[in-house]
Nucleic acid binder design. Sequence first.
DNA 1: GCGCATCATAGGCTCATGCTTACTGATTCA
DNA 2: TGAATCAGTAAGCATGAGCCTATGATGCGC
Lengths: 147, 147
Amino acid sequence: MSAERRPDLAAMLFPLGRALVALEEPILAEHDLGMWAYAVLAGLGDGPVRTQAALAEAIGADKSRVIAVLDDLQARELIERRPDPADRRVRLVSLTPAGRRLRDRVQDAIQHAEQRYLEVLPAGDREAFLRSLRTLARAVRAGRRTS
Amino acid sequence: MSAERRPDLAAMLFPLGRALVALEEPILAEHDLGMWAYAVLAGLGDGPVRTQAALAEAIGADKSRVIAVLDDLQARELIERRPDPADRRVRLVSLTPAGRRLRDRVQDAIQHAEQRYLEVLPAGDREAFLRSLRTLARAVRAGRRTS
DNA sequence: GCGCATCATAGGCTCATGCTTACTGATTCA
DNA sequence: TGAATCAGTAAGCATGAGCCTATGATGCGC
């Protein structure tokens, strides 16, 4: 047991991630949302409003790539983009009520679908798994900042 | 607690995966290995020999994309590619002793680096997390086959 | 007021990926 | 024997991601 030969983390995480994304795709397609669009909606949920560059970085997207997504979401009245009265260089991005509703609906559907995967885990492990994932995700975000 | 608002699994898995890959890259570069090359070396470890198409599918790569990788690994005498005497259409791919040594060395280095991430988890959760990951990764592989 | 930094935006460039087609040699089956 | 199938190989194409630069508008320190 000294040298437990487990597969590398990345070797297990990536197929899992791909499978999860494949799970999300049909759900997002139903609501005419792309991955990035959904990432924006979900990312806006955490904080109330923010600046666009920060939003892009928060969801791990390229600054220039997010703009087209925001344009589309704005045209569909799912988000609002207003110039900050305090600093008119930045745009305050916020969810509209419709955007909030859509995000909730999609997120519910996705998390319901995810249950199918989580069900293969014993209840105790499932708890610990989700807790660990959140801890690690937070650590990654923190690491990005300091490095 | 009825509606626990956790982030979607994919939203946590993907940044983690990216961070893990970023962790591996410098280690692989030290040994002149690309991601796919390492995936092949690691993938060959499980079974003793196999057919190329099966290998490609096992590591989630495209059949045509793997060939160049195999060519390179073979040129460096890390793998062996021999026609199967039983069915001369297929090539039996196997690690050479040098290939096995390299894979072990790299895998040790990678898993050592991964510890830095796992350390943020309490010991009990870490166990459950790794166990869950393996279970889920297996479930994904199984799901790919049946669907 | 002037120069420098910052934000949003736009465009382009490169690369890896996934997908597709075609060709060759080998096998299997009718 | 002949036809269909299959593994490996090679090449091409479309897509999307990351990255880098430029521009216009604004804010801030000097």
